[in-house]
């Protein structure tokens, strides 16, 4: 039965790969936060360790909650427990999440839940991803007027390509991935509606063609912030790993 369990653990890991560090907008599996992933029967056990013991409790909570949810959604899994280790609030978070408590119940000092914060970070990630999607489409020949009015249904996918018909004669063809990545975040924020522009400014509003460049620079800034912070966290993580392994 070892083979089945290995397969199940791999399947759980793949599901958990979808969970992102809300601030870095990268998979917690790629970031090596997931230090253990075991399956026994229909139960999954996971362990998360973050780059520091003082990473924001709210961010830590989000990752633990999301990891548990994704693990539970894996085929053949009915229950999951995620343990956060080496964190100043490891106990409250581990207990709270696995008991299905709300954040503000686990932390009575919290003023309200974390939905607003989650949304804020999701917005930053969306904007950062918009930079790459727009850049890809601009390089392929779309102008700002077309980009400002491009709707979700105006984008077709074929294999690893994205296709944007410009008119009867012209179809712009690009790499699919940056577009997919952007649409994922936009959808989570409820910004994708038929007939409405897919790309938005930093407040979620449609963009005038003349303002598109400013929004693109603001999006670039969001991207620089996220990747800059990723660099800092990576440095902290490396140090922590080295210390743990000694």
């Amino acid at each position: 039965m070892a083979g089945t369990e290995d397969t199940s653990a791999a399947a759980v890991r793949e599901r958990v790969r979808r969970v992102t560090d809300p601030e870095l907008d990268r998979s917690i599996v790629d970031l090596e936060y997931l230090t253990e992933c075991r399956v026994e029967g229909t139960h999954a056990s996971l362990t998360l360790r973050l780059p520091t013991a003082w990473c924001s409790p709210a961010f830590a909570w989000m990752m633990v909650v999301d990891a548990r949810e994704e693990a539970r959604s894996a085929p053949g899994i009915e229950t999951a427990r995620v343990e956060l280790v080496d964190h100043m609030h490891a106990e409250e978070i581990t207990h709270g999440v696995n008991e299905g408590l709300a954040f503000e119940t686990a932390f009575d000092e919290a003023e309200g839940g974390i939905d607003d914060l989650r949304r804020e970070l999701l917005e930053k990630a969306r904007l950062a991803r918009q930079y790459d999607a727009v850049r890809t489409l601009r390089e392929a020949g779309l102008d700002d007027a077309a980009l400002a009015t491009l709707t979700p249904e105006g984008i077709e996918f074929d294999g690893d390509r994205a296709l944007v018909p410009v008119d009867d004669a012209l179809v712009v063809c690009t790499e699919r991935e940056p577009i997919d990545l952007y649409l994922d975040r936009a959808e989570r924020l409820g910004l994708l509606e038929p007939g409405r522009p897919a790309f938005r400014d930093h407040e979620g509003e449609p963009i005038e063609a003349e303002e598109f460049e400013l929004v693109q620079r603001r999006a670039r800034l969001a991207r620089t912030n996220i990747s800059g912070q990723a660099g800092i966290c990576a440095g902290l993580h490396e140090s922590r790993q080295a210390a743990v392994e000694q």
Partner: peptide
Amino acid sequence: GPTIRPLNMDAF
């Protein structure tokens, strides 16, 4: 730096 209060707000 990272502020811990309020817990549900952006720490930074």
